[in-house]
Design a protein around this nucleic acid. Structure first.
Lengths: 104, 104
DNA sequence: CCTCTGTCTCGACATCCATCGAAACAAGGA
DNA sequence: TCCTTGTTTCGATGGATGTCGAGACAGAGG
């Protein structure tokens, strides 16, 4: 087994997503969105949870969006965010592989 | 459903581990260790894979170790690292919960 | 048109982080 | 003991990141 399970380029992509999860606020944002009724939440419902100003929340949501972890669409005045299950599942798969050692 | 699935303190712990995974080099180190014969690898076998000096590899291994993702023990001249499956599985569980939305 | 509210962008600041060279520490062998 | 090799720690430096205030943009409703 000389081949590396996680290659250099793939590691860069994965690291970008894991880095997006590497902040307590973003982790809680993702959790709040995922658990919110209907699987989506607007920014106004997320901002009040933290002792952080609007621009900071907006920044974290942008990071999550650019990592492919959430998507947002505007409906009228409000912007609703929901999680992207595929990206999350991809990460879980990688962790499972690392856990199992050498893959099939 | 007003309770937050991932609370504030737990988010801090989880973020620390995800942050450790948020670097391409550390991701590949973890992968290399996990896939190496016997489930363990010594630093000398890891250093040559990257265009990085010894201190940098040592630093990344320290970050992984402090995150609880790997353990290292010295046997004679060499130090062997192996992955901690429990920590990895814990992360996979969290991702699965976020994916599923509201947990059971 | 104006205003109000929700959200984002921009620019700044302090802090953190990845990387390295130099030096220290650990273990084995001459 | 000294030397050599493997690994870590220390200190420094350039670049990334979290946070915020001020302002801009978008949409709804007078």
């Amino acid at each position: 087994m000389t081949t590396e399970p996680v290659g250099a380029e793939r590691a860069v992509e994965l690291a970008r997503v894991f880095k997006a999860l590497g902040d307590p606020v973003r982790l809680r944002l993702l959790s709040l969105i995922a658990s919110h009724e209907g699987g989506e939440a607007c920014v106004c419902e997320l901002t009040g949870v933290f002792d952080l100003k609007g621009p900071t929340i907006s920044h974290h949501l942008k990071v999550l969006k650019e990592a492919g972890l959430i998507t947002g669409d505007r409906r009228g005045t409000w912007i609703y965010y929901r999680v992207s299950p595929d990206t999350l599942r991809g990460l879980a798969d990688v962790l499972a592989l690392d856990d199992a050692g050498v893959p099939a």
